[in-house]
Amino acid sequence: MSDPAAPVLSVRDLVTRIGGNAVVDGVSFDVAPGEVVALVGESGSGKSLTALSVMGLLPAAARAAAGSVRLEGEELLSAPERRLRRIRGQSLSMIFQEPVASLNPLMRVGEQVAESLVVHGRAGRAEAQARAVEMLARVGIPDPAARARQYPAELSGGMCQRVMIACALISEPRLLIADEPTTALDVTIQAQILTLMKRLRADFGTAILIITHDMGVVADIADRVCVMYGGRIVETGTAEEIFARPSHPYTRLLLSTIPRLSGARKELLRSIEGSVPDVSDWPEGCRFRSRCPLAQEDCAQVPPHVPVAGQPGHTAACLHLERIGEMT
């Protein structure tokens, strides 16, 4: 807390297991104050389970088995549930993919936004209500006093996501975890929500950990990117570096599969052969080797993260980084 450059969130060697399988397998990353870090990956990559491990909200079948998750220096993995609840109401907030399903349908939205202040004893009911209306205005809800008296079903999906963001930010958290916050929304509403998140980050200085599969969303909002595959981070770097010099074969293929808004049309798109294997079928060593065009026999060893030449903070976990140029 005293060191302004110390990370808000520091995750080290996190292992999360479901049964015998390590679905998150040695994940490490930091989020600095006011920074937006994106965890990117396809379904089954472990990105959402990493976020749920940080929040202490894993489903009953899963448990964080090893490693460390520190929020402003405080270890969360061994913290008692009472303490975690306190942290989740104050310094750590989250928003989810389905805003409509995440809100209580029987509670007026103003009360839901005010709830965390009241529950944690940080404001009386009347003051909390007034601050909730103010927060609804800040997330761009027109006529906030009237909207505060409405129920979620009376609002559109985009409005509900704004309410979720108001709920998350009213406690002025140090870290906001956003799990696919725009995936269920139309592209026009997604653009509005991303603009709002960027503005609130500037206003409140909130650090954001965003979980997404959409490279466009990453390009729009992220300062740094962690690309996940098979429960591990395979490449990390600033957003500019990851897009300009993708160095892990998976990152490079993932970016090349996206159809563009300019250039050739109607041609075959690049694709990645096969599909993401189920966790019980993950190969030994590099998890991507079963689909990787550069795979060799030595890929059966777990590849360490190595720096990508000349780019500070940019690392990739591939034994054959020097051959990335062979992929066109």
Binding site: G158, M159, V187, T188, G216, V218, A219, A239, L261
Partner: peptide, 24 residues
Amino acid sequence: LLAAIPLPDPAAQRAKPPFALEGD
């Protein structure tokens, strides 16, 4: 609709003017 699509290129995406379409 076209302006709302985030481009998979941080430099190009951040150079775009802020998205203007309001409401639902």
